[in-house]
Design a protein around this nucleic acid. Sequence first.
DNA 1: GCGGCGCGATACCGCAACGGTATGACGCGA
DNA 2: TCGCGTCATACCGTTGCGGTATCGCGCCGC
Lengths: 300, 300
Amino acid sequence: METRELRYFIAVAEESHVGRAAQRLGMAQPPLSRAIARLERRIGAHLFIRSPRGMTLTSAGQTLLREGRAALAAVEAAERRTRRTIAAAGRASVVLTAKAGASSELMAELLDAYAAEPDAVDVEVVLSPPGHQGPMLRDGRADVAILHQPFDDISGFDVDRLNVEGQVLILPADHPVSRVTSLTVAEATSIPDLPLPRWPRLDGTYPDGPGPELRDLTQVLQLVRLGRAAIVMPESARVNVRDGLAVVPVSDAARVTTVIAWPPQSVSSGVAGLVRTASRLYGAPHDRPTAAGTERGPGT
Amino acid sequence: METRELRYFIAVAEESHVGRAAQRLGMAQPPLSRAIARLERRIGAHLFIRSPRGMTLTSAGQTLLREGRAALAAVEAAERRTRRTIAAAGRASVVLTAKAGASSELMAELLDAYAAEPDAVDVEVVLSPPGHQGPMLRDGRADVAILHQPFDDISGFDVDRLNVEGQVLILPADHPVSRVTSLTVAEATSIPDLPLPRWPRLDGTYPDGPGPELRDLTQVLQLVRLGRAAIVMPESARVNVRDGLAVVPVSDAARVTTVIAWPPQSVSSGVAGLVRTASRLYGAPHDRPTAAGTERGPGT
DNA sequence: GCGGCGCGATACCGCAACGGTATGACGCGA
DNA sequence: TCGCGTCATACCGTTGCGGTATCGCGCCGC
């Protein structure tokens, strides 16, 4: 199966409509119809059920959509990382991504400590909105990421745990709720005049709702100070708190685990060094030994 | 990048020789040369250094080889699993792979318990030589696997731990060493007249060495009983031990962790059910929550 | 120093496959 | 029953892929 066929299939599956998919792909409808039919013949299974209202996936089609998306991301990651290997003109380099404003102390320490290593390479830090780090790691726009469980999906990555902490509500200092000593999640998310902010989806659009549209945490804190929003975040964000802000622990909020994550194949020397440094500074011993792969034993 | 180009690149990279790679791919040398040159132009980087003795990889080429292999396996996995989805003729089915003879009690319990679930699907069990389970899971020949750390490479898979145990040496009952109460790894692997067996590599060939060539554990135990071999394996293999065999604990051997592993995207209902059953029977609570992906929080 | 050898690159050709335009088949609602 | 929206089919031009023949170029041996 060629990646072009996979791209075509995914477009049709997502649109449930050959015409719209063709438009999205910048081609005419008939060749796309034929390409899908050819793919079905080659695989030996019907992927779609044709109806006069469009195309719906069969169970085989659902399998191919799930697995195909991951496979296509892997191919694109391979291509992107290859291109980046030489973009640095002989000088190796690593792209690290993290939520804007998150774990800032930890990251500063990590980058300083890594830069002091003898074999350190350049680290390009890409800050992006919450939820965008995993996809960037999957499709090769980044080589290593700082993620936060349970918010980020770490499945398929190798990880080292760095930190565990509780969460707090940050709100305007003059708000009446700021005087309580503790809150529940239900209470924190339902303060009527302080909506929680909304974050962009992967395509850059925003979900509907009452809160303001934001892209990073400095914007949030500004809005909170102006009395226009409140936000629940890990305790470590206290370091960003200045005058005009109040902090209230949220007793039953999920504990947040900060991890450093990397794609399992990509054991470039830069990534390995960063992970080693992070593990030395914060880590428990690895819970998933990464280099066990080549070892072969008698087995059980 | 098309998968055909990737296959060409990998062949040339592995052979370091366009002619041999072309032969392996069943094509002539010139079109392969051109395809590689075209790929380099499209990526915008030299992937090979041409010499009068052949082709050697640049650093960009090494990146593409590492990442490309994984990407190609992912594409092949998508295709295989799609094909298998319908091969079961509407009836969902799951392929589980494990080392022949390993964790047999655990597997029997697991399969029985799963079959008793209300939504259970057919489980096809594929037993294969040690070390072959991971690759089968990666390229789609299997959907879920029983693996053993530290022998198997679990990077890139989601896993649940099922069991932890020590290792023992199994040897002929009449052998003098069988009278000691404990051994070290160094002692166990250097008994001169009892060589450790050799297992097939992924391509089916065997490494050089003194031991017999084997494919599964029943063969081993037969040979041990005949006084022709000895083997170090996890304690649970004691259940296979009959007359004529002796068991000696190996004190400093690595502890073996049995895990159930599955590819992160492939959360088909059959795999999910098997994992749930395994987790209920043996599991600690998940250390890597698998379904956290869609959850989106305010982040830190 | 020169010819032969082994390597990848280039030139040229034929064909398969891809994409575009025009049109058909079919179900559904007005 | 007509019109619309959907996907499929027919036909055509072009692209690009692979095959054969040949070149260019280091290297080694005589």
